[in-house]
């Protein structure tokens, strides 16, 4: 990978809070990470840990409470409306539900052209050529598919259409939020392969958010594990899955079942459920469920630190390599 180059996307101490009545939900509680050019960073964690909010804050669908997001060294946070609109075209987001994110009354070729029309980036023949190119790139026939309406397509094909629409702006960064979660395995495999191909073809940089750990491993170069608004561990995929250092990563990975009866389930039973983000535990947020927790975990917040090259963990008692 391009570990030496400067990061393409930088997230620094990002905080996103929501008001819930008189209470405050800190959905993202100060996270920092870099994504390098041409890299796919996977983001995993249990439901409600703040994955989507992180993605939405990066593209500024959600306004960050504090912290910074920069693309190619250019701050997105703090930009004025019109500057932000322009800068934001270099980051596109793809969502879980492909069908509802497509306007049912428009033809596919016009749906795909939507961003070009909104930003007035291309018109006439040039616009049509870009749309054709992207429909072809995602494996749809522009002449046949382009004239049809979303309802005539399956879930997997609708996801292809959303990808084409995201790509017409020639983005640098693509944020994929559970983009294959609603699809059958056979179609999921088609889309995952397509993502890998498009990444190579267009030199895309990806943040791939999903709760399926096997899917995330398949497409990611590095993986970040999130728990209750914070990052627990960030490492190259193969390292993270082979040598998880954080007790939460270990519990998460051991709960995954392989399609193989000889590898019967033998998992670290994780008891209880994630605490409420309204009133998170002091110190390490995982301590209430952690088999290794000690006094220090209640008083001192563990910071992300490097325990091996490119392998960072936020735990007072990580499992270190022999």
């Amino acid at each position: 990978m391009s570990a030496e180059s400067t990061p393409l996307l930088t997230v620094n101490d990002l905080v996103v809070s929501f008001k819930k009545g008189r209470q405050v939900v800190q959905a993202v509680a100060g996270i920092s990470f870099d994504v390098f050019e041409g890299e796919t960073l996977g983001l995993v964690g249990e439901s409600g840990c703040g994955k989507s909010t992180t993605g939405r804050a990066i593209v500024r669908i959600e306004e960050p409470t504090s912290g910074e997001v920069a693309v190619e060294g250019r701050q997105l946070t703090g930009l004025g409306r019109s500057e932000l609109r322009k800068a934001r075209t270099s980051i596109q987001m793809i969502f879980q539900d492909p069908v509802s994110s497509l306007n049912p009354r428009r033809r596919v070729k016009d749906i795909v052209a939507e961003p070009l029309d909104i930003w007035k980036t291309a018109e006439g023949a040039e616009r049509d050529a870009i749309v054709r190119e992207m429909l072809e790139a995602v494996g749809l026939d522009p002449d046949v598919a382009g004239e049809r309406f979303p309802r005539e397509f399956s879930g997997g094909q609708c996801q292809r259409i959303s990808i084409a629409r995201a790509l017409v702006m020639k983005p640098k960064v693509l944020i994929c939020d559970e983009m294959v979660s609603a699809l059958d395995v056979s179609v999921q495999a088609q889309i995952l392969n397509l993502v890998e191909d498009l990444k190579a073809k267009y030199g895309l940089t990806l943040v791939f958010i999903a709760h399926d750990l096997a899917v995330v491993k398949n497409v990611s170069d590095r993986v970040a594990v999130m728990y209750l608004g914070r990052l627990c561990e960030v490492a190259p995929s193969d390292d993270l899955y082979a040598l998880p250092a954080h007790p939460y990563t270990q519990a998460l990975l051991s709960a995954v079942v392989e399609p193989d009866p000889e590898k019967a389930a033998s998992h670290v039973a994780l008891t209880g459920e994630p605490p409420s983000p309204i009133n998170p535990p002091s110190g390490c947020r995982f301590r209430t469920r952690c088999p290794k927790a000690e006094e220090r975990c209640a008083t001192e917040v563990p910071e992300l630190r490097e325990i091996a090259p490119r392998h960072q963990v936020a735990c007072h008692f990580p499992t270190l390599r022999a």
């Binding site: 056979s186 495999a189 088609q190 096997a214 398949n218 990611s220």
Partner: peptide, 21 residues
Amino acid sequence: LKSTPRISDPSHTRLTAIDGR
């Protein structure tokens, strides 16, 4: 089975998709 990603496979293992639907 072949189209299912496995946690024991190295990352970027090419999946065998089933074409069509």
